[in-house]
């Protein structure tokens, strides 16, 4: 458990975006993730409208190839991570067990020069937006610390994505900070309870409700937890947006 390390990952992402003079994007997250985790490639695929896997971003030469393999072969660690809502970590794609699990994907990935792949779903409860895949040329597991960092990168990708989706919606993500950050409050029960309540109150899905909750906290300069507690205690309601 290392809060400082987690904060360092967020700082690296934000610093890079600032240096580029752009808001944090999925590309920023992939790029910093690849550097931090000695990855040959990092890719993000989103849940499409169809049950699926829609490649949106890749950093590093082999990453697109891996996403292609997932799409064309219909199997692989990334798809399993999406289907099972849990990280799927593969230390050696050439191993027998791995070949049995993904008889087409595993050999094809090895042929493409990849030996290890680590897929982390972009998840916050029932909010599921896609998967982050980290691939390496050499076999071997992530250290516990690297796995912890990867989870933070997955959080960052999720956050970027749920906010980007809001841009298509009338209420937008107005009032959201330029600086992306994710405190430990996001892991607290009240935040998720409040998200559920807001989804019903404002007749939206959970991911929109979550973004509205965060935007409200930011606009009022209050902590996310404090706002969530107001919602749960029914001191604060979110009305539907009329478009």
């Amino acid at each position: 458990m290392d809060k400082q390390r987690s904060a360092a990952v967020w700082a690296a992402i934000n610093d890079r975006a600032r240096a580029d003079g752009k808001p944090v994007s999925i590309d920023t997250v992939c790029l910093i993730c690849a550097q931090a985790l000695r990855a040959q490639g990092v890719a993000v695929a989103l849940n499409g409208r169809l049950p699926g896997y829609e490649p949106v971003c890749a950093s590093g030469s082999g990453a697109y190839r891996l996403m292609d393999l997932h799409v064309t072969l219909g199997e692989g660690p990334g798809l399993d991570a999406l289907a099972e809502d849990r990280p799927v970590l593969v230390g050696d794609l050439a191993e027998d067990g791995t070949r049995r699990r993904w008889p087409m994907f595993a050999p094809a990935a090895v042929q493409a020069g990849v030996r290890a792949i680590f897929a982390f779903p972009l998840l916050l409860g029932a909010i599921s937006v896609g998967v982050l895949e980290i691939s390496r040329v050499e076999a071997g597991w992530l250290t516990p610390q690297e796995a912890a960092d990867a989870l933070v990168f997955a959080d960052a990708a999720l956050l970027v994505q749920v906010q980007v989706q809001q841009v298509d919606h009338p209420e937008g993500a107005a009032g959201e900070p330029v600086e992306l950050r994710w405190g430990t409050a996001e892991r607290w029960a009240e935040v998720h309870q409040a998200t559920g309540m807001i989804a019903i109150q404002s007749r939206t899905d959970l991911s929109t409700a979550f973004v509205r909750l965060r935007a409200h906290a930011f606009a009022d300069d209050r902590s996310l937890l404090a706002v969530a507690r107001d919602v749960v205690a029914r001191r604060l309601r979110f009305e539907p947006d009329f478009d």
Binding site: R86, G125, W141, G196, I200
Partner: peptide, 29 residues
């Protein structure tokens, strides 16, 4: 491969809890 499994299982368990909290909120409202 204990560390890997712990990551897989632990994250799944923690996320299940979040799903339950979200559902509690919806049902409560």
């Amino acid at each position: 491969r204990e560390h890997q499994l712990i990551t897989e299982q632990l994250q799944h368990a923690l996320n299940s809890r979040i799903v339950i909290e979200q559902a509690k909120g919806m049902l409560a409202e």
